[in-house]
């Protein structure tokens, strides 16, 4: 998977039609929105484009320059929002933040804003401006739906045990000892223990994915706030 924004030029119909999707891998179009302008970071607004939202990515294709287009995977879209506050941006738009490759972090956004040479992989903000602002809410909902279709990959089995037992910060040590010494002495053991264990694994896996390296402070705060 490529993090961040990239150029997109593959169109059907001799390069003038719709974007070419990875249909072999189940990619399908969810929404087509003509009349959308795009703003990358603080660069100038690029007008007259069409927005294509698939279940995998967001694609904007220029209507004017058929060789121009951008795409970003939903996996790289950290946040999206409906921006209607003129102080935030003069016109109503869908505001998105894009996760970029950490190697590109040393130079700030300002680079891409100042110079004409555009390094797409460093763009961390994208605004989509539909000509009709009343479309914002439905676009937002489509983005939500697609984001939910693209959870983080690599949360495979096999890591779960390591995670559970390395997380003794979750319970105080005394309790962890107690648990390891009295595995059968569980309150919820009567019925449905298996289900419970399954649920636990699921939630831990989820938690781990949710915040790969930084879960413990949350749990700590939950426990220490008593």
């Amino acid at each position: 998977m490529v993090l961040g924004l990239r150029n997109f030029t593959e169109r059907t119909g001799d390069g003038i039609g719709q974007p070419v999707l990875d249909t072999d891998n189940g990619e399908e179009l969810m929404c087509v929105q003509p009349g959308v302008d795009i703003v990358l970071a603080n660069r100038t607004r690029e007008s007259h484009g069409t927005l294509y939202v698939s279940n995998k990515q967001v694609i904007w294709l220029s209507d004017v320059d058929k060789a121009k287009g951008y795409a970003v995977d939903f996996l790289s879209v950290s946040l999206h929002a409906v921006s209607t506050d003129p102080e935030a941006y003069p016109v109503p738009c869908i505001y998105t933040q894009i996760e970029t490759d950490p190697d590109g972090y040393e130079s700030d956004n300002s680079d891409s804003e100042c110079s004409d040479t555009l390094d797409l992989s460093r763009i961390r903000e994208m605004r989509l401006i539909p000509s009709d602002p009343s479309q914002l809410d439905s676009l937002f909902e489509v983005f939500c739906e697609c984001a939910e279709l693209n959870p983080e990959p690599n949360e495979e089995e096999g890591e779960e045990h390591e995670w559970i037992f390395s997380a003794d910060q979750m319970v105080d040590e005394e309790e962890a000892d107690y648990i390891s010494q009295n595995p059968a002495h569980a309150i919820g053991q009567s019925n449905g223990d298996h289900d419970l264990a399954h649920t636990v694994l699921q939630s831990l896996r989820m938690l781990r994915r949710w915040s790969m390296t930084e879960t413990t402070p949350i749990i700590d705060s939950v426990i220490s706030s008593k």
Binding site: A81, V82, D85, A88, Y89, E99, A147, P217, I218, V222
Partner: peptide, 25 residues
């Protein structure tokens, strides 16, 4: 520039902390 937005969707994987209301804990 992000002063305020009406609706906001945040990807779970980019969240570091959620600060909770004390009365909700």
């Amino acid at each position: 520039h992000m002063l305020s937005v009406r609706n906001c969707f945040i990807r779970g994987s980019v969240v570091r902390y959620v600060q909770l209301p004390p009365e909700g804990v």
